[in-house]
């Protein structure tokens, strides 16, 4: 037990390992069709992306509507590397992720001093400006005709295990970001930036670190998506709908929790598949309705529903539930949403 930090609980570790083993042998045992296996790969990918978004939106309480910028950048950088240098794809993903993280820091370092709605709206500007520039930067993105990657046989089934590994890493990272001392610092920043700074936490540094991690991970997810899809175009990769999808996954599942965004991503991918098949005209509006219903009735999404059921059947001690809900609560408790860090505006 000494090998592990004190905040790693044994049940959590066992659960994660068990889930990994199940995930690894599942396609073999069930003999999943290629189609369903691809669906599962995509689900794994978006679980990772939703959790990475949640580090910003849930742990820090800084809701970003601009994460498509990093998703797209990671995708196109790695696609270019794969096409030009024929790197092994995992190396291309990492480089794509690093570039995305650097870009996140460039716009995020100044804007993260804003809190709440101010930050959110700045990210809309960042996302849209990035999309516009990228759509016309044909040397990188191929313009509106996009980029095609070479198709290698067997790649998609290999990517299944890569996606599983990626998701496992991101879940472990989410867990450690939540439970470690660093994670407690994030919680303090989310509750009250000024008070956190007063007790010796550096909000600027910590927010930058979270942004780097989140940007890197979302960039890697974008790069993975590029390899997986074989074809990417800027309108889809950098689109506002892409940014919204991360927000929706986390909000539907439960912002600020770990299981929540993961569940949300599963529901989102399934729902989208169904809606695009059956009601292609309606899916945007249905997401909107879902968002309204969740925020209005259960701001913690599916996790909130779960807490409610657990309470009804007396499965959860009230103090445990209170801590969980306080950690997960949507938005921070900062004194003035417009206030900048470290003092009066």
């Amino acid at each position: 037990m000494k090998l592990l930090p004190h905040w790693v609980s044994r049940p959590a570790l066992v659960a994660l390992l068990a889930a990994l083993v199940v995930g690894a042998v599942l396609p073999k045992v069930l003999g999943l069709s290629v189609y369903s296996q691809n669906q599962v790969t995509e689900t794994f990918l978006f679980v990772a992306a939703a959790l990475a978004w949640n580090w910003m939106g849930g742990y820090l309480g800084q809701v970003s509507f601009g994460h498509s910028a990093m998703f797209g950048l990671g995708g196109f950088i790695s696609a270019r590397l794969l096409l030009a240098l024929h790197l092994p794809f995992w190396l291309a993903w990492i480089v794509g992720g690093l570039v995305a993280a650097a870009y996140a820091l460039v716009w995020g370092h100044p804007t993260l001093r804003l809190r709440g709605p101010y930050f959110s709206i700045a990210t809309i500007g960042v996302g849209e400006a990035t999309r516009l520039v990228m759509t016309y930067w044909e040397d990188l993105t191929g313009g509106s005709s996009g980029l095609s990657l070479p198709i290698t046989p067997g790649l998609k089934s290999e990517l299944y295990w890569w996606a599983l590994a990626l998701m496992a890493l991101v879940i472990a990272a989410s867990y450690s970001l939540r439970k470690s001392t660093f994670g407690l610092g994030l919680l303090a920043i989310k509750s009250d930036v000024d008070a956190a700074a007063d007790v010796g936490i550096s909000p600027t540094l910590m927010q930058d670190i979270v942004l780097l991690l989140s940007g890197f991970t979302v960039g890697v997810c974008g790069a993975f998506y590029a390899s997986y899809q074989n074809f990417i175009e800027p309108g889809d990769m950098f689109g506002f709908d892409r940014s919204i999808s991360f927000v929706l996954m986390a909000v539907i599942g439960g912002v600020g929790t770990i299981i929540g965004p993961a569940l949300g991503a599963v529901v989102f991918v399934m729902l989208r598949q169904y809606l695009i098949g059956s009601y292609p005209q309606l899916y945007l509006g249905i997401y909107g309705l879902l968002l309204i219903v969740v925020i209005l009735f259960e701001p913690l999404g599916m996790m909130g529903l779960f807490f409610r059921i657990a309470r009804r059947f007396g499965l959860m001690r009230p103090e445990v539930e209170a801590t969980l809900e306080a950690k997960a609560a949507v938005g921070g408790g900062a004194a003035d949403p417009g206030a900048r860090q470290g003092g009066a505006p």
Binding site: V63, I295, P299, G331, A335, P337
Partner: peptide, 11 residues
């Protein structure tokens, strides 16, 4: 107040 700010934004 601030807690509702992000919620109303999403709503």
């Amino acid at each position: 107040g601030p807690a509702g700010a992000v919620q109303s934004l999403l709503l």
